[in-house]
Structures are given as C-alpha cells and as structure tokens.
Design a protein around this nucleic acid. Structure first.
Length: 274
DNA sequence: CGGCGGTCCTGTCAGC
DNA sequence: TGCTGACAGGACCGCC
C-alpha cells in the first residue's frame, strides 16, 4: 500500500483535479471492501460538490457541500485515479466510480480489497470509529524526540513495532519505519524503553525527513502504486535498506539482513544499527 | 492493558 | 509449463 507519502501524494493530486467539481453520478460496483459500502452510496453523493480534500493518517477525507465526508483508505493495493473521460470499460478490481460535472471520472481500484470507503460528516468525523483512536501526525510539530521519549518510557515493545503503532504515531508504515531506523542507526529489535532521549530526537527527525523526501519524490512505487494522475512515485530508488536483503549496506558494505517482527519484514544493517 | 498472531484478499515471483 | 508456497505498501480483532 501506499504509506503516508503515497496517500499525501494522492490527496494533493485529487485537490488539483477534482476540488470544486460536482459529482453527477457515483456507484459502488460490489457490496463491500474491508467493510460494506454505505447504503444508498450513489444517492447520497449525487449532485454534491467537493469542497475539501484532506488526509488524516492514511485516510483520505473528501468533504462535500452538505457536510458529508467520504472516508477512503487504500489498504495495501488501492488506487484512486482521475481519468479525463468517463471510461467505457471497467477494469478488474474497479470497485467505486465517481463521475464529475466536467466529464472526468474518479475510480477506486483495489485488487486485494483491504481498502475501504465509508461516510461520516463534519460534526462527527473526529468521533468516528476509524479516526478517534489515531495518534499524532508525524509531520506536525508536536511529534518530536521529547514526545517519543515520553511515550517509550517503560515500553518493552521493539522500536520498529512501536513506531508503526497507529495509536502512538500515524502513517509510519513498513518501508519508512525501516528507512528511518537505518538513518538513526537504531536496530529494529531495540527495546523502545531503552532508547536515549538523544536517539529519540534523532529518530523523530529522521521519520520526518524520510516522509518529507518521499512526498517530494511523489511517493514510492513497489509493484503498482500510482498517484491520482496515474504516475508512479520515485522514492523507491532511494531506499537504503527496504527490500535490499543480501545487498551491501550503503555505509559499511556488510549485507543487509531481514527478520520478521509482528508478521512484517524488517530490513536492517546489523553492523550500523545497534 | 500490552503485545502478538491470525485474518481479510489477490497477485506475483521463486523454486521445483 | 504448471504447481506450490512465500510474500506484499495495512490494520482490525481476539486471545493470552
């Protein structure tokens, strides 16, 4: 999936292309993704105008002129792509379509169906089940070394698992967790409670930097991620450890290793990261 | 409550 | 060529 930089790239792309447009027709092409589509999906959206597009964690929030908010998540394999014309043929795994008053069409496609689309509204969005327990945004100023040091106190959880915990900090997925730990020279298995205040500062800074740089590069494309314009990202060419098992460390030339933590692959340099 | 494993689903790739 | 198993960007849920 898209991690935070990819979702941010999609949001920016959508803002540039569909903001202010009216939805003339919308439909879900199957009853559910990870959760069921809302009842009356098309009827609720018809003739509503798109007033705002934002992001909270990896959720895309599309606010309409009546206060309805479309909550969309791309899961592991989801895409939201704007086409210049209404499409005659539906592609495999197209699950929802939004036709706009300027003739463009927004399509939600998700092979693995780990994504979701549901509704909330401006009065209730912060209380929404999917939103209410989310932790701090990593690119906001409140996310810093002090914050991490405080949260990590007395925690036995491996640092990699901790920074991927969305109730602590959102949007740090497997790729950027690995990359930020490498930049900080911290082993993914290090106990979070044993990370010094100085190292927490370094780590918070590197999480921000790696996310910023990835957003600047239009995200990372592994298999088939594309932004809302259908373009690939470029940050994957700058991975130092992710997906590089057996290749040499860019810093010390020792081979990059891989291990499983909470069911996810962690890539790291055992020599550089302690 | 914290932490971990299983699970949802399809697609791709390596190995035999 | 075709089968099988491992693995993939996420995150919820339930179990200890």
């Amino acid at each position: 999936m898209p991690e935070l930089p990819e979702v941010e790239t999609v949001c920016r792309g959508l803002s540039n292309t569909i903001l202010g447009r009216k939805i003339t027709f919308a439909d879900n092409l199957r009853p559910n993704l990870r959760i069921p589509f809302p009842e009356n999906f098309g009827a609720v959206l018809k003739n509503k105008t798109i007033k705002n597009i934002s992001r909270r964690a990896k959720y895309i929030l599309i606010t309409l002129d009546d206060g309805t908010i479309i909550i969309a998540h791309l899961g592991m394999s989801g895409k939201m792509v704007v086409f210049p014309n209404f499409q005659n043929d539906r592609q495999k795994h197209d699950h929802a379509i939004f036709q706009l008053d300027d003739g463009k069409e927004l399509i939600f496609n998700d092979p693995r169906r780990f994504g979701l689309i549901t509704f909330s509204d401006t009065a209730n969005i912060n209380k929404h089940k999917l939103i209410v327990n989310l932790g701090i945004e990593p690119l906001e100023s409140g996310f810093d070394g002090k914050f991490l040091f405080k949260k990590f106190k007395n925690k036995n959880t491996p640092i990699k698992t901790a920074i991927m915990d969305a109730s602590l900090v959102v949007g740090v997925g497997n790729i950027y967790a690995c990359e930020a730990l490498f930049r900080s020279a911290i082993a993914p298995t290090a106990k979070s409670g044993e990370i010094s205040a100085a190292k927490c500062n370094e780590l918070a800074g590197n999480i921000k930097n790696v996310l910023f740089e990835a957003i600047e590069s239009g995200g990372s494309t592994l298999r088939d991620y594309v932004g809302s314009s259908g373009k690939s990202g470029y940050f994957q060419h700058r991975f130092k450890v992710y997906g590089r098992e057996g290749e040499s460390c860019v810093s010390c030339q020792n081979p990059i290793k891989r291990l499983k933590q909470s069911g996810r692959s962690s890539f790291y340099c055992a020599n550089c990261q302690k």
